[in-house]
């Protein structure tokens, strides 16, 4: 069910679209280590990520891509375990791959193929029947904005178009998780904007959960509600969800009730900024608002302090 939040929507309408249960953990890591020869790339990572849109943030060489490749079963872990959607990476990798759409960082295409054939083939490899894969290939290419160019050979595409084609192949089979490795790499500002808008659309559609791997704070800020910051293969910071509410009729009682949930909260005029505590979902905030007749006019997953947090994590 969709959890799209739109400005100016009344509490009752929003409440009807709130998910009945909190999101299940997407990624669970337990002392996960990855070693290439003598080099240890990931050091005993332990965390549980359950956001709608999760960012793996960190400078180049922090281990973001290695973590993604380990979750996809491309690399073997040297110690510990990892789970995606509850499936163990070591023993149930085919189940994981069946629910994942992956957009790699580097060029990945077949140059002598048209985009529609390429996306269709990827759909068929994911298990779609040929006719359905063709239909969905067209849909996916329309969706990412390559409709006019879908019969052109991929080798003739610009970098931005290749990125979009990679996104199309990642969503053609309707995955539950979309893993995006540096999706805005090498894009000019307008192409980057398009890509970010697309990721936001997918996130807000609520059909897929997103894992975005990036070293660009802006990309993460614009698209993610949960951040795992990596530095030299270690977790430097795990940033919970930040929420900004624009309310009408909020009072001290409402603020106090939110703080009782364990959320840190700051109020300025009719705006409230808060850090959601573990186990607290947006539906809990809506419930409190409904009980106290507080109207929520706007809700944003904001990360105003992300840059500060990132710099602090890098210094530590």
């Amino acid at each position: 069910m969709s959890t799209t939040i739109q400005p100016g929507v009344a509490n009752g309408e929003i409440a009807q679209r709130i998910p009945a249960a909190p999101l299940p953990p997407l990624i669970e890591l337990q002392d996960l280590s990855v070693r290439f020869g003598k080099r240890e790339i990931l050091h005993s990572l332990t965390t549980s990520l359950r956001g709608r849109s999760i960012a793996l943030l960190g400078p180049n060489g922090a281990g973001k891509s290695t973590l993604i490749n380990t979750l996809l079963g491309f690399y073997k872990s040297s110690a510990g375990s990892a789970r995606v959607f509850g499936y163990d990476v070591g023993s149930e990798i085919k189940k994981i791959r069946a629910v994942v759409g992956y957009m790699p960082e580097n060029d990945a295409f077949i140059s002598k193929m048209s985009a529609v054939s390429f996306v269709q083939m990827m759909g068929e490899l994911s298990g779609l029947p040929a006719d359905m894969a063709l239909e969905r290939a067209h849909e996916a290419l329309f969706y990412v904005g390559l409709a006019e160019a879908r019969y052109r050979q991929l080798g003739t595409y610009s970098l931005g178009m290749k990125q979009l084609a990679k996104l199309a192949q990642a969503i053609v089979h309707g995955p539950k998780v979309l893993i995006l490795d540096e999706p805005s790499n090498g894009l000019d500002p307008s192409a980057r904007q398009r890509m970010i808008r697309m990721i936001r659309d997918i996130r807000d559609g609520g059909e897929m959960r997103i894992v975005l791997c990036s070293h660009l704070l802006r990309d993460v800020e614009d698209t993610c509600d949960e951040v795992l910051i990596l530095k030299q293969g270690r977790i430097a910071h795990y940033n919970k969800r930040f929420l900004e509410l624009e309310t009408y009729g909020a009072n001290a009682d409402f603020t106090e009730a939110i703080e009782k949930l364990g959320c840190e909260c700051a109020v300025t005029a009719n705006r409230m900024k808060m850090i959601l505590a573990d186990g607290i979902e947006t539906r809990d905030i809506f419930r409190l608002a409904a009980e106290r007749q507080v109207r929520i006019r706007r809700m944003n997953f904001r990360r105003d302090t992300l840059e500060d947090i990132f710099l602090k994590a890098m210094e530590s």
Binding site: L72, G73, F74, K94, K95, R97, A98, V100, G101, Y102, P104, N106, D107, A108, F109, I110, S111, K112, M122, L125, S126, G127, K166, Q169, H173, I179
Partner: peptide, 15 residues
């Protein structure tokens, strides 16, 4: 061609 264009991750990220 698959190796030259880095297409293998696209095959193997699927079942």
């Amino acid at each position: 061609p698959d190796l030259a264009n880095g297409a293998l991750p696209l095959y193997f990220c699927r079942p």
